[in-house]
Design a protein around this nucleic acid. Structure first.
Length: 655
RNA sequence: GGGCAUUUCAUCUAAUGGAUAGGAUACCAGGCCUCUAACCUGGCUAGUGGCGGUUCGAAUCCGCUAAUGCCCGCCA
C-alpha cells in the first residue's frame, strides 16, 4: 500500500515502477507483520547496487526486534516468490537495503514508447488540473533597468510559471508596478535638476537613462537636509492630476517600464497583466480590505489609540508566533496616522484580489503587444472624469486557488504579514495557499546592487546578456566562419540569453549569488551552453543521417531494447524517465534550481552515450543504428521540454 | 536586544536522515581519417566552521558557539 494521499493517475513508466515496488514491498512487510511505514527510494551510489534502493527495512529493526538485514532477507524471500512487476532482481545489501534491478529491456521500451507518444506533451501532469495559480514576479521599481538581482526574480518567477503550467495549472503571471512611489519622486527631482548632466546616447534605453537620472536625484535628497521636504512636495504634486508632475510621472514610469519589459522579453519572459499599485488605492479595494479585517478580527487588526503610533491601523502579529512578540513592535502598521496606506497594507489588499476576494474593483485595458504574440493587459480604474478607458470587461484576472509571490528574502516579514492577514480575514484556504517564493540577493564580491548608488551600472541584465552574447559570437565565428553573420548573431543571442537565465536559476534560492564574470561567462561544464551544445549534437546526428540517406525510423516505432542496450543507454533512459515525477515534486516544493540541474544531468548522460555508442559509423549494424536513433530522438524531446518549455531557453540548430 | 537564513575540496557548487559526501572549474596527461573537441577519458588535490546531543545511521534533526547576510521604519 502506498501512502494515503491521492496521487493523480500517472502512466509514465518510472511511476509504474515505483508503484509496483511500493505495492510489492508493502504487502511483503504486511505479511511479516510490520507496520508499513512510508516506502522511500533512493538511487544507489553505484550501479552494482542495482537501480533503485529501498532503505525501509533498516527503520523497522526496533519494532520487529530483528536484525535489519534479516528483515530485508525475509522481504526479499517473499518478493522472489511472487515476483515484482518491472523488476528483474532483488538483492539485500549493506545494512539492510533492498536493491532492485530493473527489467531493462521492458523498461527502456516503455520509456521510449511513452516519450515518443507524448512528444511535446511529455512531462505534463495533472496535479494542478482545474486549479488556477497566480505567480507575481519581477515587480521592479520603474526607475531603473532590470539588474541581475531583479533578473534573478524574473527568471525564477518565469520558470515557476512554466513549471506550474506543465504541472497542469492554469497559470497567470503578474507584474506589480509601483507607479507612484517615493523613488519616482526622486527620479523626477533628478530629471528636473540634472537632465543636462546625464548624457543619453542614442542606443540607451529609457530604463537605463532614468536609472542614471535617479542616481543624480538621489544624491541630492537622500540623507540631505531638506531632502525629505523636496520629495514630499513632489509626491504631493504627483497625486494631483492637474499638475505637470503627475503627467511627467506617468510618462517616465511608462517609458521605464517598457524598457524593463524589453529586457525581460529578450529573456523570453512575458506577463499576463500589470497591476498598478495606485489602483489598489483608487479603486477602493484597499479601504474595503482594511475595514473587513478590523470587523472580522478586532483583536488583531485595530486602530492604535495612544502612544507613538496613535491613529495608525495595525495588524498584530503576536497571534502568529511568539517570535513576533520579541520584535520592537509586535504589529505591522497598515495605515498611517494620516490615513495613507503602507506598502504592506497595499500588499494585503492585492493578495485578496489575487484570490478573487475583491472582484469588480479593476477593469483592464491593453497595455502592449508582446513579442510572443500575447497581449499584456493592465489594470484600469475609472477615476471620475476623463475619457473612458478601452476596457476589456470579459477578461477576468485574479481569482486564483494558489498564489505565489516571487519576492526577495528581505521581504520575508512583510510577506508573512500578508499571509497572516488571510487568516485574520477568515480565509484559511488562502492562508494555506499563499506562498512566498523567497530568494537571496545577487551582488558583487564586495557590495550589493543599489539603485541609489548606481552599483548596478555594468551589471544590469542587458549588459550581462550582451557580454555573454558577445563571447558566444566570438566562439561561433571561430568555429563556423562560413556561416552567414545574421545566423551567427541569432545563435549567439540564444546562447547569451540561455547562459544568463540558466546561471540565475541554478543556485539554491536561499544562497546569495556573487557575480564573477569568469564564472558567469564560463561556457564549459555546469552551464547552459553545455546543455544546448548537447542538444545540437543530437540534432546534428539526425541531420547527418538524413544527408547520408539513412532512413530515420518513425519516432513512434517500437524500440527493441536489446539493440540499444548499453550502460550509457540505460543511464540516459533512466534520466529521461524521471521528468514527469520531477514535475510533480517540483510543483509542490518549488525548488526551481533543480530544473537546470536536471538539464545538466541529462546532458551529461547523453554525452557519455554519444561517445560510447556511435550511430552513423559504417560498422554499426542497422538495427542498432535504428534503436540508437530512437534514443537520440527521445533525448531531444526531453531537452526541449526542459530548456524550452520549463526554462524558456531556445535551442540553436547549430553551434 | 530579538527573529530568519547561510557556512561543504584551491574556487563555484550538489546531496527526500541512509551505502565510498557527487559534480563543475582550475591544473596535468591523453583522445578529432570516423555522428560538432562549448565534448570525452584518465590523473591530481581534497572538503561538511567549532563543541555537544538525538539516531541502527547526521552535511542534513536538536542545543550551545563563531563568522557573514537580511529583517524587526507611519520608507518603498
Amino acid at each position: 500500500m502506498s501512502t494515503g494521499t491521492p496521487t493523480p493517475a500517472l502512466h509514465d513508466p518510472m511511476t509504474s515502477v515505483h508503484e509496483a515496488i511500493e505495492e510489492a514491498v508493502g504487502s511483503a512487510l504486511e505479511a511479516i507483520g510490520a507496520e508499513t511505514p512510508e516506502i522511500t527510494f533512493e538511487i544507489p551510489p553505484d550501479p552494482k547496487f542495482g537501480d533503485l534502493a529501498c532503505p525501509v527495512c533498516m527503520g523497522l529493526a526496533r519494532a520487529l526486534k530483528k536484525n535489519p538485514r534479516q528483515i530485508a532477507a525475509d522481504v526479499k524471500a517473499r518478493l522472489d516468490a511472487t515476483g515484482v512487476d518491472w523488476v528483474a532482481r532483488v538483492e539485500v545489501a549493506g545494512g539492510g537495503y533492498l536493491n532492485f534491478t530493473l527489467d531493462w529491456p521492458r523498461f527502456m521500451a516503455a520509456v521510449h514508447d511513452h516519450v515518443s507518444r507524448e512528444g511535446d506533451g511529455y512531462g505534463f501532469v495533472g496535479v494542478g488540473k482545474g486549479k488556477k495559480v497566480v505567480v507575481e514576479h519581477t515587480s521592479a521599481n520603474p526607475n531603473k533597468p532590470i539588474h541581475l538581482g531583479t533578473a534573478r526574480c524574473a527568471v525564477l518567477g518565469d520558470v515557476t510559471g512554466r513549471l506550474l503550467k506543465m504541472a497542469g495549472y492554469d497559470v497567470e503571471v503578474e507584474n506589480y508596478v509601483d507607479d507612484l512611489g517615493r523613488q519616482i519622486a526622486v527620479l523626477l527631482h533628478g530629471y528636473e535638476h540634472h537632465k543636462a548632466e546625464v548624457e543619453r546616447n542614442p542606443g540607451d534605453k529609457a530604463d537605463y537613462y532614468f536609472g542614471l537620472v535617479y542616481m543624480k536625484g538621489s544624491e541630492d535628497v537622500e540623507d540631505k537636509p531638506g531632502g525629505e521636504e523636496i520629495v514630499r512636495d513632489i509626491l504631493h504634486k504627483m497625486e494631483d492630476p492637474s499638475t505637470p508632475e503627475n503627467k511627467l510621472a506617468k510618462e517616465v514610469v511608462d517609458q521605464a517600464l517598457k524598457g524593463q519589459l524589453e529586457t525581460t522579453w529578450r529573456m523570453n519572459i512575458f506577463y499576463d497583466v500589470l497591476i498598478w499599485e495606485r489602483h489598489i488605492i483608487t479603486s477602493g479595494l484597499f479601504a474595503q480590505a482594511i475595514e473587513t479585517m478590523m470587523a472580522r478580527s478586532p483583536e488583531t487588526c485595530y486602530k492604535v489609540d495612544a502612544g507613538d503610533d496613535k491613529d495608525c491601523i495595525v495588524l498584530d502579529m503576536s497571534a502568529f508566533g511568539e517570535k513576533y512578540a520579541q520584535d520592537k513592535k509586535p504589529y505591522k502598521i497598515l495605515v498611517r496616522s494620516n490615513g495613507v496606506s503602507t506598502y504592506t497594507g497595499k500588499d494585503i489588499a492585492f493578495q485578496l484580489w489575487k484570490f478573487g476576494e475583491a472582484a469588480g474593483y479593476f477593469s483592464y485595458e491593453r497595455f502592449i503587444m508582446q513579442p510572443n504574440g500575447k497581449l499584456l493587459y493592465s489594470t484600469v480604474v475609472d477615476e471620475g472624469k476623463g475619457k473612458k478607458a478601452k476596457k476589456a470587461p470579459k477578461l477576468s484576472f485574479g481569482n486564483a486557488d494558489r498564489v505565489i509571490n516571487v519576492i526577495g528574502n528581505e521581504q520575508k516579514f512583510p510577506q508573512e504579514v500578508v499571509k497572516s492577514a488571510m487568516k485574520v480575514l477568515g480565509f484559511d484556504d488562502h492562508y494555506e495557499n499563499s506562498q512566498h517564493l523567497s530568494f537571496k540577493e545577487v551582488g558583487l564580491p564586495d557590495q550589493k546592487f543599489s539603485g541609489r548608488k548606481g552599483t548596478w551600472v555594468g551589471f544590469h541584465a542587458d549588459a550581462a546578456i550582451d557580454k555573454a552574447t558577445e563571447k558566444a559570437l566570438a566562439i561561433i565565428k571561430e568555429q563556423n566562419p562560413t556561416m552567414p553573420p545574421s545566423e551567427q548573431e541569432a545563435i549567439a543571442a540564444t546562447i547569451g540569453v540561455g547562459a544568463i537565465k540558466f546561471y540565475l536559476a541554478k543556485f539554491d534560492m536561499e544562497k546569495e549569488i556573487t557575480i564573477i564574470w569568469d564564472d558567469l561567462l564560463n561556457f564549459e561544464g555546469d552551464a547552459c551552453p553545455y546543455v544546448q551544445y548537447s542538444c545540437v549534437r543530437a540534432q546534428s546526428i539526425l541531420n547527418k543521417a538524413k544527408e547520408a540517406g539513412v532512413a530515420l525510423p518513425d519516432a513512434s516505432s517500437a524500440l527493441l531494447a536489446r539493440d540499444v542496450d548499453s550502460p550509457e543507454a540505460r543511464a540516459l533512459y533512466f534520466s529521461l524517465a524521471h521528468l514527469p515525477r520531477k514535475v510533480v515534486a517540483w510543483a509542490a516544493s518549488l525548488e526551481i534550481n533543480q530544473i537546470p540541474l536536471y538539464a545538466l544531468e541529462v546532458a551529461d548522460k547523453f554525452n557519455k552515450f554519444y561517445h560510447e555508442c556511435p550511430i552513423l559509423r559504417s560498422d554499426v549494424p542497422e538495427p542498432v543504428q535504428r534503436a540508437r536513433i530512437l534514443l537520440v530522438q527521445d533525448t531531444i524531446t526531453v531537452f526541449k521540454q526542459i530548456l524550452r518549455q520549463l526554462m524558456g531557453i531556445d535551442i540553436p540548430l547549430r553551434m
